[in-house]
Design a protein around this nucleic acid. Structure first.
Length: 278
DNA sequence: ATGTCTCAGTCACTGAGA
């Protein structure tokens, strides 16, 4: 079974490219972020014709998360418990939640598609929101693991954090000013490891970025960041047989600014179960 | 030089977000 995560940066602008990649790479489940549309605007036909079911969560032209899967998805959640909201110019509790988290169950595996808030700058309310959002997510992940210690569960998406210095090569990033590299963000990310969730890709793919800005020839200069991750519970990590970062998806016509991250699991899919007929 | 990309709102641009 192959599971992937991809910040697609508008699915309407990229449906052909995404579906072609899914088919070419034989992906069973894709977690998408930044679909940038409402469910009724999602280009569903292209996915369905290729054999994928969809679960879509989007409110507007901003954010938005979705799953495409060859196998049925159940137990859909459009937020995790106590997920903070945000509204520019407003503060305090009770702000509207954004479309940044989507949970589904495929087979026995619990999967989350996550689009962590950007943070914007260290003195912006969005940065407080980002840290709070990550802390509440970590609380949920920790509670889920305590309740179901044997369960395979993955937190996959655009984390908007470069956890290590080697995870970014962006001249404009300034320590003490820029988001994505600040100690509180990195601590919020590493808290998931303390909670029992490990980056299942890095041991197999130790190097490489997952995002390059459109500006300033960032991709040809390889001025990118590694900010898209798949964190797995112990049971999920035990299933992983391989992983890959699909750097080539940053090339060619109309790419997203992020590339897909893939894990292979030793789980029999329906396809594998089908008897061979000669 | 925030030098790109995407979408909304409104109709050739600007604003917002990343």
């Amino acid at each position: 079974m192959r599971i992937a995560t991809w910040n697609v940066n508008s699915i309407r602008a990229r449906s052909r490219r995404v579906v072609d990649w899914l088919v070419r790479e034989d992906i069973d489940v894709l977690a998408m972020q930044e679909i940038k549309c409402k469910p009724e605007q999602f280009p569903a036909e292209a996915f369905e014709e290729a054999g994928y079911e969809l679960v879509i969560h989007g409110f507007s032209q901003w954010n938005g998360v979705a799953f495409a899967s060859r196998e049925p998805m159940t137990d859909v959640a459009t937020a995790f418990p106590a997920m903070p909201g945000f509204l520019k110019g407003e503060e305090g509790p009770g702000l509207p939640q954004e479309a940044r988290a989507l949970g589904v169950t495929v087979g026995d595996i619990r999967l989350w598609s996550l689009y962590v808030p950007n943070g914007r700058s260290l003195d912006d309310p969005h940065y407080v929101y980002k840290l709070d959002w990550l802390a509440r997510l970590e609380e949920h992940a920790r509670a889920e693991l305590a309740a179901h210690p044997q369960r395979a569960m993955a937190l996959m998406g655009d984390w908007n954090v470069a956890p290590f210095d080697s995870d970014q090569n962006v001249p404009g990033l300034v320590p003490g000013v820029s988001t994505h590299i600040s100690p509180p963000e990195r601590a919020a990310f590493h808290a998931f490891e303390t909670a029992g969730f490990t980056d299942v890709v890095r041991p197999i793919v130790p190097d490489g970025f997952t995002y390059w800005d459109y500006k300033q020839l960032a991709f040809p200069r390889n001025e990118g960041m590694r900010i898209d991750f798949i964190l797995g519970s112990p049971a999920f990590a035990d299933l992983v047989t391989d992983a890959s970062i699909h750097r080539n998806e940053r090339k060619g016509d109309a790419p997203s600014d992020h590339v897909p991250v893939v894990v292979d699991l030793e789980v029999a899919s329906d396809e594998d179960d089908r008897p061979m007929i000669f």
